[in-house]
């Protein structure tokens, strides 16, 4: 059995979270509350040391004055707390949304559309390739919105959803492995690091 107080705290909290599987209870509620409080402070402190300090103050010190704009945008966000000038925070929000939309537009166009299309352009010389082309096309047809799914279109959409379902089943089955591994890791912590029953 461990003599490290930290391990005991960790074990106590681990059991607290696991107890949720039986039902919601005070033990879980305490662990949850600690988690919420501690993690909020963690991110706050982390942001100060890893973002505000190096990326904002560090760059300003180096004389890269345009980082002041980021500081101003940040302060603008805080204007929300003052009702009279709260509307100014929308400018900062608009900046985040606009640049985010532009960036995502490009990223998705390149990685979700172009690369995927490139990967689908294959010669029709094997069952695998023919299946790939049929699957992608019928899958896309399932996502047609402006036409009723009837007749040929409906049939294709149906095949599309078959593919999608097989994929969901396979991904689900595949993920089981990873999740079980994590549980094994936790159990190993309880029985080995804490109780010392496993060697």
């Amino acid at each position: 059995m461990s003599t490290d107080i930290g391990v005991w705290i960790a074990a106590f909290l681990t059991l607290g979270i696991l107890s949720f599987l039986y039902k919601d209870n005070p033990f879980y509620k305490v662990s949850e509350s600690i988690f919420i409080g501690v993690s909020a402070a963690y991110w706050f402190v982390y942001m100060i040391y890893n973002v505000i300090e190096p990326n904002l103050l560090g760059n300003l010190q180096k004389g890269e004055w345009w980082y002041a704009v980021a500081g101003i945008l940040g302060v603008m966000m805080l204007f929300r707390l003052i009702p009279k000038i709260g509307w100014l925070s929308r400018w900062a929000v608009a900046f985040m949304i606009g640049t985010g939309a532009g960036l995502n537009f490009i990223v998705y166009l390149q990685s979700n559309v172009m690369k995927q299309i490139r990967g689908t352009l294959a010669p029709l010389n094997s069952i695998g390739n023919i299946m790939m082309i049929v699957g992608v096309i019928t899958g896309l047809i399932y996502f047609f919105f402006s036409a009723e799914h009837k007749g040929l279109l409906g049939g294709a959409a149906k095949v599309g959803i078959w593919f999608i379902m097989v994929s969901f089943g396979a991904s689900f089955g595949y993920t089981v492995m990873a999740r079980i591994s994590l549980l094994i890791g936790r159990m190993h912590f309880l029985f080995s690091d804490w109780l010392g029953l496993l060697h």
């Binding site: 599987l21 039986y22 079980i180 549980l183 094994i184 159990m187 190993h188 029985f191 496993l198």
Partner: peptide
Amino acid sequence: RRIIFILIAGAVVVPLF
């Protein structure tokens, strides 16, 4: 579902021992 939970826990822990 708690019966499933117990069996999963058992399936993971017993082979460890």
